[in-house]
């Protein structure tokens, strides 16, 4: 076996969190509703925390609290952007990369220079949208209590349904042939166009782009165990969940 160690310039996918807040407590308040209390909402993706939208920087920031908070959501913070220099030492102690400089160097590298550019930060502003459609995840067996299906990019198609206590999370839409039970979250990355479609509708919770609804007192007869579509509609400037039977003529 070769023992050669190689350093290659490469790109990898990650998540950029743009937050106008730097207090872990405030973030927890604001995001609790969005993620409906789901621990490990994400699947361990690397994340860059972008704080360029913070208008009023406090003197002290609980960086380790912030990192712990995003870890609980299932992200792995690897670096920050848009943070005043006075925090550099604190960030270094937590081994968080300060990425502003790297991003600037990347832009400089666009002008011809005989130097190899450093690996770009994930999802740098210059990255083009991929032309290949995001892959669809096909799940052929029932998703059972305690199991989680997570599609960080595309759609999920459940060919044998899901059971109570299961959790289905997709950046895109969720299609279900068979009973749909458990917690079902589509448009997880904020995609307002995502939908949930099921032949036998009966989940405990549905969510599209963070707007969710639970069915504590059971489902209305008009949708229970029927073919149902869930999507967002705009009502007086607000996104609302629309849950309606699909007419099968």
């Amino acid at each position: 076996m070769s023992e050669e160690v190689r350093f290659e310039s490469g790109r990898f996918e990650g998540i950029v969190v743009r937050s106008p807040l730097v207090s872990p407590a405030r973030l927890a308040d604001v995001l609790h509703k969005r993620f409906a209390g789901t621990e490990s909402y994400f699947g361990g993706e690397p994340a860059v925390l972008d704080f360029s939208e913070v208008s009023d920087w406090p003197e002290q920031v609980d960086w380790s609290g912030l990192v712990a908070f995003f870890r609980r959501l299932g992200l792995q913070p690897i670096g920050v952007r848009g943070v005043p220099e006075s925090f550099d030492a604190a960030l270094k102690r937590l081994h968080l990369a300060v990425l502003d400089e790297a991003a600037m160097r990347l832009e400089a590298a666009a002008t011809p220079k005989p130097v190899k550019p450093p690996p770009p930060p994930p999802e740098s502003p210059s990255s083009a949208e991929p032309l290949v459609p995001a892959p669809t995840k096909f799940i052929e067996r029932p998703v059972r209590a305690g199991q989680q299906i997570y599609a960080p990019e595309g759609d999920v198609v459940l060919l044998a349904g899901s059971n109570p206590g299961a959790e289905i999370i997709a950046a895109g839409s969720i299609h279900c042939w068979g009973p749909l039970r458990g917690r079902v979250l589509a448009g997880a990355g904020g995609n307002l166009q995502a939908r949930i479609l099921a032949t036998h509708f009966g989940p405990e919770l549905v969510s599209i782009a963070g707007i969710y609804r639970t069915f504590e007192n059971g489902l209305p007869a008009s949708i229970a165990n029927r073919s149902v579509q869930v999507k967002l509609q705009i009502n007086q400037g607000q996104n609302q969940l629309l849950i309606e039977p699909i007419d099968t003529l």
Binding site: P142, R144, A145, G146, P164, G165
Partner: peptide, 11 residues
């Protein structure tokens, strides 16, 4: 429910 859970673990 518990049986469902164990079926998932089996697979």
């Amino acid at each position: 429910r518990d049986s469902d859970r164990i079926l998932g673990i089996l697979q």
